[in-house]
Nucleic acid binder design. Sequence first.
DNA 1: CTTGGTGCAAATTATTTGCAAATTA
DNA 2: TAATTTGCAAATAATTTGCACCAAG
Lengths: 137, 137
Amino acid sequence: MFQEYLAKNQLKLTPQRMCILDVFLRYRGHMASEELYEQVKKRDPHIGQATVYRTLKLLSGSGLAKEVHFGDGLTRYESTYGEEHHDHLICERCGKNMEVVDPRIEALQEELAARHGFSLTSHRMYLYGLCEECRKG
Amino acid sequence: MFQEYLAKNQLKLTPQRMCILDVFLRYRGHMASEELYEQVKKRDPHIGQATVYRTLKLLSGSGLAKEVHFGDGLTRYESTYGEEHHDHLICERCGKNMEVVDPRIEALQEELAARHGFSLTSHRMYLYGLCEECRKG
DNA sequence: CTTGGTGCAAATTATTTGCAAATTA
DNA sequence: TAATTTGCAAATAATTTGCACCAAG
């Protein structure tokens, strides 16, 4: 899948890219470039962070990863491989965050967009609140 | 309203803050610090950008402004004074963006959060797509 | 007159880029 | 072999901070 994308765009499959992709896919959750870089260095200490940044953009372009912005200055990426689309429910106190979907919301989003003449290509929805534990604590 | 907030937090009302607030409220749309700074300079050329950044954070803390992230690296702010909550519908080609709301979506968001034990405090929803003109052109 | 604010310039932070050497197709 | 990629370090871009001076309560 990544290989196809590379081939299609006359890009090359390098060991660095394979390593970064592999670490990225194995890791669960939303990772920022810096975190990914730390992990990657453990396997191949002389991969540079610029390569990680560059590869992350590639993955994003290929559709294997998706940018997510939680509001701190960081650009995070999440894998979309074998993953359904989802939105994010984030606890403002403890930072816990879960992936959620509601098909009824998805349908209404399409409708809402259509009502304004738009055809949707994607969306992001972030729900902020307090989780059960934090509400009690 | 801003004054109350300042007083409550033992902060001071300065001419710079008044000027920045005034420009901010007058301006329509979502403005980044840099843009606001440009406008503010026209009125009082020796206000520094640091003050604009600092004031924008204040406004955000006071509830008069709200951070918005469209996905380019910029932090934008929109006024919430006298404004209803809304979400954003953004054209990926021409950048046009409109404010939208759907009460049914809002209700379902609450429900979805509750189902996971969360109580919502806020949310952001960004719908990306192509507007009518861009779809034709 | 005390506490907080301002402007400036220097410092951070996250990310991008230039370039010579190395590598893939 | 030609074209792309890499790692490094230097360059940007957005935002923050330290500090001496100024001003609001």
